[in-house]
Design a protein around this nucleic acid. Structure first.
Lengths: 132, 132, 132, 132
DNA sequence: GTGGTCTAGACCACA
DNA sequence: GTGGTCTAGACCACG
């Protein structure tokens, strides 16, 4: 999975890990049932405190992305988050609004935003759709 | 502009203000040269600490969204962010990656993501392109 | 709210806090918008580590029961968990199955289980229904 | 009895076994005197560590659900838990409180909780009452 | 003042 | 070995 973090980033370390894992799943690098590195192992590799990794894994479990099993390890979940359609849509709209607003202030117009999204989806196609 | 904030949101108040202003500009509700309410005025209207408003305006100025003229007030900037093309592109890619990754974990596929963006851009078209 | 914990219980302290808060909300002792004691204050009152309280509040936020606002405190949420109907039903069935199974092994029959539930609901009526 | 476990569940495997057995008894699939598979046999069938099965059986014996006869195997007990009436009632109230509290936070009201319990009891009636 | 992040290290529970 | 809980204490961010 090639997990790296940037300790100098304003984004908390545990959130960086959370996003990297979500990203790996969304790119098909990790699939349902796959095992993640152990808390201690990843902490050693990233030279950070095990509690920080544990926090990231905890967040990922709360989001329905992974399951943690005592004595066994952490595994990519086979099931989705279980959110209601309305809630999912609300969050999607917020994500889109954020892209459009911030993108506009970076100087990008409607067409460039659409193209950027299309290019991203073509370059790294999503795995078969995940349940909500 | 009808600036409202949600005091029950976990998003910091100053960030809510920043985003609402950026959003208003991106939707054409605010345009170059328009004047924003004064720090004291807005703080009174929203019933929040003036320091919080001041921090929001500082952030907006640093982002190149507004300019503050001594004694005259705050105005929506005519110019863009002033970032280099490579940096702008990097940030756009990051925004797109975030949409795709989080959207996937909400259960949305490539087509639905493209559609959601297109619908958003049709419903609230962007103003004429802003300079970078 | 009268929060007490049992340090000798096998149930983790942070989970005891989580349940007590959920319970207080389900009994109408706490309602939407109400403020919880601060992390430090509650930690001092219960004579436990602030991190343990923070963990409980974090869990409550993930469950959609409260919202935490930096610099302001923790407040009972006005909104529900946002779970899909199917997921809510699945969890309810699991709760019911647990009651029936464990209740049976305690020596209680169908009628006694129904009566115990009815009595509980009569003695402490639920507040007006919470959104899912 | 068709004992199955879900290795992807965060619930410890030995607890899954404990609950499945209790559940089977509460549904009449297993009755007093019935023999359970041996530790080694069940461990092989479920492809898990024999220690895990042994732990589950120990827990079931401590709860009064099964009895282990030296060299003969494990059998569903004819007797109840042996708990005092007050302790039994305390545990029942706790179970009911848990159902009501968690059910409320899932968005269910008093009536829906009562209905869910009644439906469950109708769909899978309890065997003749077990001794306390 | 509030909550948020991170480190360090102890001890327990599960497989 | 794995993850889970808890403590102690530092430092940062928000209002």
């Amino acid at each position: 999975m090639n997990l790296r973090i940037d300790p100098a980033s304003p984004e908390p370390i545990f959130e960086q890990i959370v996003f990297r894992v979500k990203n790996a799943v969304a790119q098909g690098e990790l699939g349902g049932g796959d095992r993640l590195p152990s808390v201690r192992e990843l902490a050693r590799d990233l030279a950070i405190n095990p509690n920080t990794v544990a926090r990231a894994y905890e967040t990922l479990e709360a989001a329905g992305v992974i399951v943690r099993r005592q004595g066994a390890g952490c595994f990519v979940s086979e099931r989705g988050s279980g959110l209601a359609t309305s809630e999912r849509r609300r969050r999607l709209d917020e994500l889109v609004d954020r892209l459009v607003t911030e993108g506009f202030h970076l100087g990008y117009g409607a067409r460039e935003l659409r193209d950027a999204l299309s290019e991203r989806l073509s370059a790294n196609p999503l795995p078969s759709k995940r349940d909500a």
